[in-house]
Design a protein around this nucleic acid. Structure first.
Lengths: 242, 242
DNA sequence: GTAGCACCTATAGCACCGTTATATGAACTG
DNA sequence: CAGTTCATATAACGGTGCTATAGGTGCTAC
């Protein structure tokens, strides 16, 4: 029987390691710090996890399962393309919420080391894309689409993590998201052969107009009108889910 | 007793560190290994680089300068969009050639740590995109286009590095490359209405947004807001800005 | 020359790290 | 109760990043 008030040493080790890794800004965390924070001595760590790396792997595995749980619990809107946007945004948000964990999960992947978890994430995204394919909205195979989207998603998230939180510009995410989605799927429900090249997505166009307006202000709108216009433009550009 | 044909200890340390880092598959490399390989004792390392991290930073800095040299020495084809493809592929190739270095350079970026080098890479890409913008082939500002392209480029390269060399599928790169480029630029010849150098004109962007809004209406704006928004958009589109 | 003076390198050692051989306690099984 | 197994603790080993101190080395000034 476990005591209710206090978690088992194994759990305390996991939590202490996760907490210390999250706090200490990427600098290495010693086993002594961890065991002390978990109020446990060294051999306990090695009894449960075999290794320092084993403990860290367990932390990463928990991070992945948390991420996958969040992904799986996202509702299905019925519009496959909209679902893609939701999952993309959820991925980015997870990275920004757990930056250090994310760096280990997606930024540090060694060849032949831990493809299993990333493969799971990829497989899940492929599943979502399978639904888009079933709705005849995909122009490439779900497998390739998933790889491309995940790659871009990771790149964007890493770049957002790397820059100071205050300066983060989520338009980078929205813009790249629309770029990849529009290359992989077709927006219109109708005939998939109709090309979408002539009309770029609303979000990209809104971002472009927003950027253009920064350098030259049109004289067709009064300043108050322009202010409201820019606000609406911002709303269209960011299109934050929820 | 100094041999003339032999590089200085500082250079030997740099080369030994780079070589050992490239060989030992991501596992940590000790200062003792490095100093022994460079046939030098510990204090020499600390005299020249102050720190183990200082030495590694120097290795990374050399990697970056090698990368930037390669980028800068790429010929200019005269077709800006084609240049973008070339630089994208060069980036990927660099990553596949120096996987461990690349992981440190682009996969491990800590917030507030070393943005200067990545910023240089971004600035250079922005420069290339500036030429595309000057040819009126850009739909968004060079700055945002550079960020988006670089993010996707990094994500793709990391994913390619992570999988076994035999199984690497470069179509992932080509596909994502075209996705980002086509979202950021237009393949067709220049539109004469474009006037500004860095960013496309407000009018062009407004027309694009107007067209995009015809096919899909955003749910961020109420119908009454949208009506007014479209009217203003029409006004901006009708005449060129001051 | 040689005295002074920066520079660069070596000897030897510190404090810390990950890890483990060994031992002790607790909990269940018969 | 004895036997077995699991979980934790004591104490220590070799390796690591790093440095206080001291010793060459090549220069310029006299």
């Amino acid at each position: 029987m476990k005591k209710v008030g206090e978690p088992a040493p194994k759990v305390r080790l996991l939590r202490a390691a996760a907490a210390l890794l999250a706090e200490s800004n990427g600098e290495p965390v010693s086993t002594r710090q961890i065991t002390q924070a978990a109020r446990v001595t060294a051999p306990t760590l090695y009894h449960h996890f075999g290794d320092k790396e084993g403990l860290f792997d367990a932390v990463v595995a928990e991070g992945f399962s948390e991420y996958l749980d969040a992904e799986r619990s996202l509702p299905t809107s019925g519009q496959p393309i909209e679902d893609l946007r939701m999952h993309w945004d959820n991925h980015v948000q997870f990275g920004l919420d757990h930056p250090h964990l994310y760096l280990v999960m997606f930024g540090n992947i060694q060849p032949e080391r831990r493809p299993s978890m990333v493969a799971s994430a990829e497989a899940f995204l492929e599943e979502v894309l399978g639904r888009a394919a079933a709705a005849a909205r995909l122009v490439v195979s779900p497998h390739e689409a998933a790889r491309s989207m995940l790659a871009a998603n990771i790149g964007v998230t890493l770049m957002l993590i790397a820059e100071p939180a205050a300066k983060r510009n989520l338009e980078l995410s929205a813009m790249t998201r629309e770029a990849v989605i529009s290359a992989v799927a077709t927006d219109s429900e109708a005939d998939p052969t109709t090309d979408t090249e002539g009309t770029p997505s609303v979000v990209v166009a809104a971002i472009a107009l927003n950027a253009a307006l920064q350098s030259s202000h049109p004289d067709q709108l009064s300043s108050s009108e322009l202010k409201l216009f820019l606000e609406w433009l911002q709303r269209i550009s960011s299109r934050s889910a929820s």
